[in-house]
Design a protein around this nucleic acid. Sequence first.
DNA 1: TTAATCACGC
DNA 2: GACGTACGTGATTAAC
Length: 878
Amino acid sequence: MSKKKLVLVDGNSIAYRAFFALPLLNNDKGVYTNAVYGFTTMLLKVLDDEAPSHMLVAFDAGKTTFRHKTFNEYKGGRQKTPPELSEQLPLIRELLDAFGIKRYELEQYEADDIIGTLSKQADPKEWDVKVITGDKDLLQLVDEHVHVALTKKGITDMDTYDMKLVEERYGLTPDQIIDMKGLMGDSSDNIPGVPGVGEKTAIKLLKEFGTIEEVLDSIDKVSGKKLKQRLEDNKEQAEMSKKLATIEIKAPVDVKLDSCEFVNEISDKVIKLFKELGFNSLLDRVDSGESEEGDTPTDEIDYEILEEVTMADFGSDAAVVIECLAENYHHGDILGMGIVSEKGKYFIPTDVALKSEAFIEWLEDEKIEKYAADAKQATVSLAWKGIDLKGVKFDALIASYLLNPSDSSHDIASIASRFGLKGVSNNETIYGKGVKQKVPEGKFLSEHIVRKANMLLQVVPRLQESLKKNEQDQLFYDLEMPLSIVLGKMEQQGVQVDVKRLEEMGTELNDQLEKIEAKIFELAGTEFNINSPKQLGEILFEKMQLPVIKKTKTGYSTSADVLEKLKDKHEIVEEILYYRQLGKLNSTYVEGLLKVVNRATEKIHTRFNQALAQTGRLSSIDPNLQNIPIRLEAGRKIRQAFIPSEKNWVVFAADYSQIELRVLAHIAQDDKLIDAFNNEMDIHTKTAMDVFHVEKDEVTSDMRRQAKAVNFGIVYGISDYGLSQSLGITRKEAGQFIERYLKSFPGVKQYMDDIVQQAKQEGYVTTMLNRRRYLPEITSRNFNLRSFAERTAMNTPIQGSAADIIKKAMVEMAKRLEKEKLKTRMLLQVHDELIFEAPKDELEKLEKIVPDVMEHAVQLDVPLKVDYSYGDTWYDAK
DNA sequence: TTAATCACGC
DNA sequence: GACGTACGTGATTAAC
């Protein structure tokens, strides 16, 4: 096994160096950037030269350190850090975060001590360590496996010291560097040393005697009367100086070396930051610097445009790109197809492809393994053409998402640039955007598509390797890949809509809205746009003088919770709330849904985004079918418009009961919660019992309501503020409430503490099926950012595991329906709920199968419970 | 075109 | 005590 390479950077030292080495640059916004720039060039050079597998940048923490206890004047008299430099330090931190490089600082310790501790922690059998600094003191750390690179002049020019070079330059062992500094002192750190002793004398003495102690013990033998006297007079000072100069190698650093793992990918964040900072030359460097041979968008690429496919001889392991211009692949034509494999690079015009039996056979051959950039997109857009794409074993989109859900885009160009590959332009460059979007002519189009396929082929092995390293193979191959096929089928199947019913609702809503509008105008004494928060605010809080409850950045808040509080102040408020409610129904649901109904089939085809939500959930767009109203009856009626697509069929809906809290019980291993679920207790009542210390029959409905809100908060990771809002209590009370909850459920408390610690150590949290979410902000000094990251750390494993479970259930369900040869179709997923349409005569079977599959998707230490129902419309399946 | 506000679901 | 507070999608308005 090859050794791991750890690079430790002395952040402050390098920042200082960079600042003073470079002229005071500033970018177009007037922000000083010279230190950041210098730091970045150093970083890029180190990444290039050292190719570290692990990396950490240490910073000095506060003003005082443990050394001040020894010597109050330590670092005294030092010039204050110039503000032009200190204002750049946060940017450097941001930069490191963008690079995904771990950074660390520790109260009472200096960066040196962190570096010393970590470098000595690294087992020489496993690690090679390289320290980057501008401070000679760190040379004391050099040993067989720890090397120190010292900046010479500028910042990128460095000498690497091993034991030999230290000996060569100083004639001393690394340990003796400390003694040297003890003797000669250090004016920059205000370490006194022995007056009159400089580097030369110090080295001479140490060569002769070995250490300060030995020098002092045998002062008699020192030659030179003056020197003798000076040593005699400054004995204690010399010893203290040595102590000050000694780097602590047992500092309480709570970083595991393995958590400093570093992957050298230039992320979008880095690019974005470089742009903000105006680092254009660096942009070019990261853009083209590391690309493979013949691999930039301007380099030529050799490919064949096929005018006919009689023999589909593309081999296996082929990258397939089915290009659609329309964002919505349910309608919109295929622009063309790109195939790249060992056999060659090809562009196939859509018409050529569609009339080639051989090619279609190739696409449909399960045994021919293919790679896709977006498998669901490719599958569904081909399905609309009657082609059943099969054999897709790798989807780059999903792989990229699993590796880091927070990356902003997972298209081929973005993935490629993260690996430092630049052989493909992004879609926007080729097609433009907005109104200017158009398909480029001839070669531009085919070349772009082929480049994509070509790049796909290159990134696949890299993505595979990363997945393996993260132990996400199973998650990818056994869960998300099969799920994408299932989702594609659900999308293409679509949901039948009762258009007439929707239109009726629309007419009715419009009538009502008109009436309410008239009434509001009358009450207000004037006409205005009720939909404009600005105008509404003016009417309510200026003209009508209602009390201002809350303000927003731009004016008065008119949100529902504010209006709710003003209800009894004026009749108009209730009318406005009602107007809002109906307005929302009409515009978003009635009109919105009608807009996306396929007029020929009267079906709606949503698209599930499988690579977006940070927690692992799905999302649904065009339209969003995961937020169809249910809470209020008026809205719930919208569901009457969702009907089965065949006669004598029903809508069948099954949902997990309290899946998140069950997952929490399991993950946290909280005995009380586990018991509660094992005994099929009402979980909110049980929570109320424990939090309020009352018996079951003493739980009032208000207690239960509050307990429910707390449970809600636990599941969604809301803050004390969030809870205070939902319960209408103060933040303090909400905080105490949460505390009481955690006291009542010590297992949960333990879990919450542990998971935050873990996130700090590893930099990410995981779900039951090893989905990851990185939380770089968990070490932020900004309270808000850090708190948010902490809550996310607690919440993501819960919500994400729940997402894992229902996804697994969906894959199993699809298999089961097929195996049992049922006609029932899965249509929608709404986070903890699956919606089917089913022939009535399959109901009996479904009532067994659906709960069975869903409840046994995974094995937890508490039972999973599924409720189900069915009816003639979605509304009736309640 | 973009940001801000609001509202719907889980 | 900061400061803006689960995740999404979508409609609307208003300023650019």
